[in-house]
Design a protein around this nucleic acid. Structure first.
Length: 429
RNA sequence: GGUGAGAUACUCAAGUGGCCAACGAGGGCAGACUGUAAAUCUGCUGCGCAAGCUUCGAAGGUUCGAAUCCUUCUCUCACCA
């Protein structure tokens, strides 16, 4: 049995752990779980840490359970939220649960012939059977309101500073999550719940319930929430969340997200998001410090995480795309590409279709950028032009530029660009 | 149910009859610099090439003129019961 807790500790992931947990895990092959919230039909990289936690758990020889919160998603966790949540309807939730399940399967070994195969459960399956009366008698009776009120997540919302108050629904949430733990404890001998540090309160409600209702002993462990040195929220870009689903965030963008993280963050991320051993990581950090402009750490993180999430081929394409987009490639380089390569490189770049006749009639630069949905208005295009930030096929252009069929790449595409990182593709049909 | 406060652009927030397309801050975008970074500096951030047009919770009204005054409505929050 490998030392799971120690592994997390040196990686800087460990936040809090209940006394005796480490000793117990060293002596016993243990079943542990983490809950995932189905707030969308894809997970985003914020969920990557809990996933990796489960992967480490599995690699250490224990049995991981991934719980998808079909039922708890209907209630809404108040932890870390200053405002009441919007509730999802049943249909959306079912769709989200299915999406999330599919993604988890890529990271964990669910092969049931394996010694310690991962399992997937949905708490809706047992929650839907429980009547209100049962719940109030069998669960509610064991936990006092005083205990529930003492939780940070609740206190913050009852605080006079808070502007919003808290509904009974969200107040009850911890009982739901606590009951999940109790249920898994009874049914699957699950003795450990893990999660982000914001989950501590909810998790301990579970261990408390197990103690009072089953006179059992269960353990808890939380990991640090990922922060960014500049204080911005991890996993968010201007375009929104960074998703694990290739259709929502292309592998190229995904790779770019990791590549663009700061030096300071990279030193932490390489420990958290990759499975490289301590020795390798220390060498990489040392090298990076010598030649920071090479961005050794960022590239390694990008590689490891992109391969883990999207596979090798997607990673190769992301690299190829990155070189073309950020290397010194010129219009001529672009024109030498055949259609397939071009499409691979620009996979995920937003595109719009355009009539061939529109190009042949000659297309003004303002219309090209505004009429097909790249920029919002003619005015914005003009502003951008005056900033000298508009390029066609990687060459800066001015307001009087006109796109003709000579500008077509592979006789089919025109590459529009605003600034350095924002691309758009016109596709002739 | 009672009382009070409030609703302004992506967010926070100023503005209480003309000087308001609306102070300021944050965010975002771009340019320079750079490592596709950080920090910094600069510009932009309702639509329109422009004349001008449409915006300040909604609908009406008063006025030469309304984000600002009046009426009704919708919603939010707090306190009390």
């Amino acid at each position: 049995m490998m030392n799971f807790v120690e592994e997390l500790r040196w990686r800087g992931m460990l936040h809090d752990v209940m006394p005796e947990t480490e000793e117990y895990l060293l002596k016993n092959k243990t079943t542990g779980y983490i809950g995932f919230d189905p707030t969308a039909d894809s997970l985003h990289i914020g969920s990557l840490v809990p996933i990796i936690l489960l992967m480490h758990f599995q690699q250490a020889g224990h049995n991981p359970i991934a719980l998808v919160g079909g039922a708890t998603g209907m209630v809404g966790d108040p932890s870390g939220k200053s405002e009441e949540r919007n509730l999802l309807d049943e249909e959306t939730l079912a769709k989200n649960v299915a999406g999330v399940k599919g993604q988890l399967a890529r990271f964990l070994n669910f092969d049931s012939t394996s010694e310690n195969a991962a399992q997937l459960v949905n708490n809706y399956d047992w929650m839907k059977e429980i009547s209100l009366i049962e719940f109030v008698r069998d669960v509610g009776k064991h936990i006092t309101v005083n205990y529930m009120m003492a939780k940070d997540s609740v206190k913050k919302r009852l605080d006079s500073e808070s502007q919003t108050g808290m509904s009974f629904t969200e107040f009850t949430y911890q009982l739901f999550q606590g009951y999940d733990f109790y249920h898994l404890y009874k049914e699957k001998d699950c003795k450990l719940q893990m999660g982000g540090s914001d989950q501590w309160g909810n998790i301990t409600t579970g261990t408390e319930l197990i103690r009072r209702k089953a006179q059992g002993k269960a353990y808890a462990l939380t990991c640090k929430l990922i922060t960014k040195a500049d204080g911005s929220k991890f996993g968010k870009t201007a375009g929104g969340n960074v998703w694990l689903d290739a259709n929502r965030t292309s592998p190229y963008k995904y790779y770019q997200y990791w590549l663009n993280c700061s030096d300071e963050d990279a030193e932490n991320y390489i420990k958290i998001f990759t499975f490289l051993d301590k020795q390798t990581i220390e060498t990489l950090i040392a090298e990076h410090k010598k030649t920071p402009h090479l961005r050794i750490l960022q590239k390694k993180i990008g590689e490891e995480v992109t391969v883990m999430t999207h596979g090798n081929e997607a990673y190769e394409n992301a690299i190829k795309a990155s070189n073309i987009l950020f290397g010194n490639s010129t219009a001529d380089d672009l024109k030498t590409l055949d259609e397939q390569t071009f499409l691979d490189v620009f996979e995920g770049v937003p595109q719009a279709e355009i009539e061939r006749s529109a190009i042949e009639k000659s297309l003004g630069i303002v219309a090209a950028f505004a009429d097909y949905g790249f920029l919002k208005s003619n005015g914005e295009v003009r502003r951008a032009l005056s900033e000298n930030s508009i390029s066609v096929n990687k060459e800066k252009v001015t307001e009087d530029f006109v796109i003709t069929k000579n500008d077509l790449i592979a006789d089919k595409f025109v590459l529009l660009q605003r600034g350095k990182k924002s691309y758009f593709l016109l596709k002739v049909v």
